[in-house]
Amino acid sequence: MFKPSWDLERSQSVERHTLTVLVDNEPGVLARVVGLFSARGFNIDSLTVSETEHDRHRSRITIVTVATPKVLSQIKLQLERLIPVHRVHDLTAEGESLERELALIKVAGKGENRVETLRLAEAFRANVVDASIDSFVFEITGRPSKVEQFISLMQPLGLVEVVRTGLTAISRGKEGM
């Protein structure tokens, strides 16, 4: 059934949405997606991409964007217009979804700081993936807010650098994309 679209103009305020895009993994497909965002002036807060079905040459791209409802609808429709794009789902609009991010965090320090660092890492279920006598590299996975919080706690304890994968997301329940 068709949907009237008056509600699009309802809100001028911006919302953060997570989109998941199923694409053919062919050369240039990421450039098409990214080029679309820059050409049409859409925002990208975070973007992750990886092949997910090797045999069928398919990749999933997860994009976090901030836009008004009208622009969000345009982003989805413009993405669907790209030839190698199978489907686009707005996970935020479709209800609760699972969102995770992985970060590797390097912290240097000695003495009491080092002990405190380890204690906090345990509380956050961050794993030690590298250690030297005066440093750790932690691996932490979770919602971005959790990762964010852990990083800020590490700040005063000798945070050296952080790398983050960006958000990846999947819908809840039994239905696939």
């Binding site: 679209s5 008056w6 699009l8 103009e9 009208k70 609808s73 345009q74 429709l77 413009q78 669907e80 217009r81």
Partner: peptide, 9 residues
């Protein structure tokens, strides 16, 4: 479909 509601709702 992307022409719909692009400029005028």
């Amino acid at each position: 479909p992307s022409s719909i509601n692009k400029n005028i709702v």
